[in-house]
Amino acid sequence: MKLCYYPGCTLKDKTTNLDQTTIAAADELGIELVELPNWTCCGATYPLTEEKIANLVPQIRILYNVMVEGDNRVTTTCAFCYSTLKRANRAILNDPIKRKRINAYLKDDKRIPEYDKETVYNFKDYNGEVKVVHFLEVLRDDVGFENLSLKLKKNLEGLKVAPYYGCKLLRPPEEMEFDDPENPRIMEDFLESLGCEVIDYPFKTDCCGSYLSLSAPDAATRASHLILNSAVKNGADLVALTCPLCYYNLDRRQEDIGNRFMDFSPIPVLFFTQLLAIALGVEDEILGLDQHYIDPSPLLREKKLVT
C-alpha cells in the first residue's frame, strides 16, 4: 500500500529518529510512505482569531499539493502537523468565506517569473478533498492492532510503558475527532498489541507546557515534572509519545526538572514509532537512540530488545 507522507520540519532536523523509525516500521508492515514533494512548513499552530485567515494558507497549500499529487489521504506522525492540518481542512469544509479567500491566495501562489494565465485560469479550487490521518490511525484502521501483533519479531513483554497523549491529538474534541478526550484508548491499544504492559496515570492528557518552553520555561518545567513524576510513581519504565515538542519538553527538560525537584528520578522518553520499530525487528542504527537526553539504551538492553 502506498500512502502520502508529510513529515514536517522538526522530523527532518531535531527528531530524525521519529522520521526514520516511522518510515522503517511502515516498510516492515508493507506500507510505502511516499514523501510529499516540495512540502513546506504547516504553520505549527492553528490560528485562533477569526481575522488570521492568511495563517491558514500554509496548511491548505500542503493539502492542495497532496490533491495535485493524486492522493486523497495524507499521514503524519507529528501531533502539531496533524492538528493544524486537520483543523484547517475542517475550516475549508465548513466555512465558505475562508474557502474562497484561501483559494484566492493559492491561485496567486506561482512565483512571478513562472506566472502564466493558463495555470491561473485552470486552477482547481481546494474544497477539503484530502483526509488527514495520524500514523496511529493508519496502524489501527489500515493495519489493525490484532494483525499488527501477529507481525511482531520481538515481543515487548515486561516493558512498562506510560502512554502520553498531550494536547494536540485530542483537543478540541469536536474538531480532532481522534479519540475520547478524557479517556483515550488508541495508544494503550497500540502498546498492548506490541506486548507492553500499559501504565495508567492521571496526567496522560495534560499539556507539557508546549511552546511556553521558550517564553516561560519555568511553567513548562513544572508541567512536565507533574506528568513525568506521575508516570514514575505509577511504575513506568518509559514514556511513549507522538509529538516532537512533547518529546523536547519531557526528555530534554529533565535536566531542569532534576535541578528544581530533588526527589525526581529520570525516565526515558521514546516515540511510539521507536517501540514499533523495535518490535518489528528494525536494525538498531535506525532507532536513533543516541539522540535522547535520557539514554533509553540501558533499559532496552536490560530487556534484551537492542544490542
Partner: peptide, 18 residues
C-alpha cells in the same frame, strides 16, 4: 543555545502566538 536545540515547531508556534 535554546534556539539551537529547541524543535522548529516550538519556535514557529511561539512567534505565531506572541
Amino acid at each position: 543555545e535554546i534556539a539551537a536545540e529547541a524543535p522548529q515547531q516550538a519556535l514557529v508556534s511561539a512567534f505565531r502566538k506572541f
